[in-house]
Every structure is written in C-alpha cells, then in structure tokens.
Design a protein around this nucleic acid. Structure first.
Lengths: 156, 156
DNA sequence: ATATGAAACTTTAAGCTTGAAATAATTTCC
DNA sequence: GGAAATTATTTCAAGCTTAAAGTTTCATAT
C-alpha cells in the first residue's frame, strides 16, 4: 500500500493508484505523529480519543452500534475501547428502560473535562502539522475528498 | 479522529481540522474495503501486501530496517509480518557475509508470482474505488498531498 | 403464547501495532 | 586491542482490530 519512490508507475489508472498511495502515506504519517503525542502528553491513545470525540458531541449519549458505525470500526472493537475508558472513569454505560439489549454510552463529567483539554491540544497539533496547507487549499482538498467519499458511503 | 457530521466546526484553523478528518475517513474507508477484498479473494492481509509490494520493487532485497522505514511502521512489527510471509513460502531471509546483524529479505519466486496476481487485482480495485475522481483531480490532489507531506518527512 | 427471526452487544481467536527492553554484531575512540 | 557507543534486529507486554460465533433481548406473525 504505502509504496513510494523508485519506479514511478505509468499508464492508464496509474494516477489514481498514485493518489491512493499518497493519501495513505499522508494519513499514516499524521496518525503516527498524533498517536505519539497523545501518548507522551496525555498518556492516552488515538482510538480512545476517537471514542471520546464522538461522545463529546453527543451529550445525550450513543449506543455501541452508533459508535461502531460512526467510527468505521467493528462493534467488537468498540466494546474493548469503551471497557477501558469506563475503567478509567472517563465514560459510563447507562442501562436503558426501554431496550435492555442496549446501553447509552456517554462521557462522565471527568471524561468531558479531560477531553476538552486534549481536544484543544489536538486542534493545535493539526494546525501545526497541516500548517503549510493554505486555508484555500484545505477547503479545496476537503471538497474533493468529500465528493469522492460519497461514492462509498452506504454502498453495500 | 474520525469525527464527522453534527456541529460543523468553525473558527480559525477549523478548515485544516476538517481536512484532516476527511482525509482520515477517506483512507479508512478505502483501507477497510481493500482489507476485506484481500481477505476474501486472496486470503491475505493489507500488511502482508504492503511488505510484498515493497519487496517487489527491490529485487535485490531489503533490510528489515529498510522495510520498517519505508512502510512507516515499527521494526518489531515488520519482524512478525515477515515471519508469517516466510512461513507461507512467499519471502526469504538471506544472511549476509558482510554484516551478520542483518539479513536481506526478498520475495521468493512464488512470492513474486503471487504478488503479481494480487497487485493486478489491487490496481483494478483502486481504479474502481477512486473511479469518480477525474484523472485531472487525481493529479491535482496528489500534488497537494505530496507538498504537504514534504513538511514532514525526515523531520526529527 | 410461542416460535421464528432480527437486533444489540460481547466474546474469542488470530493477527497487527507500538514502545521498550534485550541480544548480538559492528564501529569508534582512546 | 579493548571499552564504549552505535546499529540491526528480535522479543515482549499491552493494546487495537477484525470476522465469526455466541448470548440476550426484542419484534413479528401466527
């Protein structure tokens, strides 16, 4: 996937292949940097940050399946991450009256406070890491990515 | 990370944050699809494909540390993936005369043949998945991503 | 009411991933 | 030549990830 330098591919369709490779390398590079900083500065992980970010914007809480869908990861995966966040006191599961299969997951007060702090740092990091991209290019790129993602969403 | 819908962020620097979120969602979506197809069609994984792709373009072989650097993953990680590829007969380690700490890793003949087949399918999938991106946009996007990545490479 | 099926979630096994510690070989520097 | 630092790699523990199988609960249709 993360192919790169040496013999530049050429021929029909190669431009898209090259785009994909760049896209993947870019996101992996940034992801690695964020992961490292989250660990060093806040002793947390990217998956936990992702879950907290999702919950932060849903004060009423989210179902496990909502989280799974939103974060694009499997539901078994979310179970483990939420388990750890619960044991850290940052997240709580609340049984529901109506449907006993489900539980509403939400940030605790401490979780919310903690996330606020981390999120501020995170936004600063992104600004720094993408600093060389002009606001204009950022908007243009975002537009392209959005349209190309829309071919995908809710496909199967 | 993979934040999305609800309250659209606004303010200074928010365009870059949004760009990052889209970038991440796009690459995760495509990655997930590739992973699934690699599993279903060829009973292999993305990391193994990555390693084989790197080796395919280096017929003389690569050191473990070369692989690690090139693929942007830790060296301990590469050890495990190469181990599995070796046990599948797709990759071979060759001790070197000069430096006995290192070994040259390369595709076996079977590995090379196998990779050729998978790579052809892979290229087709990318063409399909990014089909809606015009060749022109693909080149433009690639250019932007390249320049923005170059702020990063060899940073520390 | 009760089977049948669907839905929400957890568990499990296998594999991927990292950072840190451990090994081993090489190089550097007195 | 030998200690000390460096380099290449593996090992390890903890955590992330998936797909598949299992559990519990709910909804539907007899």
């Amino acid at each position: 996937m993360v192919a790169g330098p040496l013999p530049a591919p050429s021929g029909p369709g190669k431009d898209r292949l090259r785009l994909w490779i760049r896209l993947l390398r870019a996101s992996r590079t940034i992801e690695a940097e964020l992961r490292e900083r989250l660990k060093k500065e806040f002793n947390t992980t990217l998956p936990r940050f992702d879950v907290m970010a999702a919950l932060y914007r849903a004060p009423e809480g989210m179902l496990m399946s909502d989280l799974s869908r939103f974060l694009l990861v499997s539901n078994g995966n979310v179970t483990g991450i939420v388990d750890r966040l619960v044991s850290e006191g940052l997240v709580a599961r609340a049984r529901r009256n109506g449907d006993r299969r489900t539980s509403m997951v939400r940030l605790t007060e401490e979780g919310s406070k903690t996330f606020g702090i981390i999120a501020a740092a995170h936004e600063g990091w992104i600004g720094e890491l993408l600093g060389k991209v002009s606001e204009d290019d950022a908007r243009r790129l975002t537009g392209m990515l959005t349209s190309f993602r829309s071919n995908w969403e809710g496909r199967e």
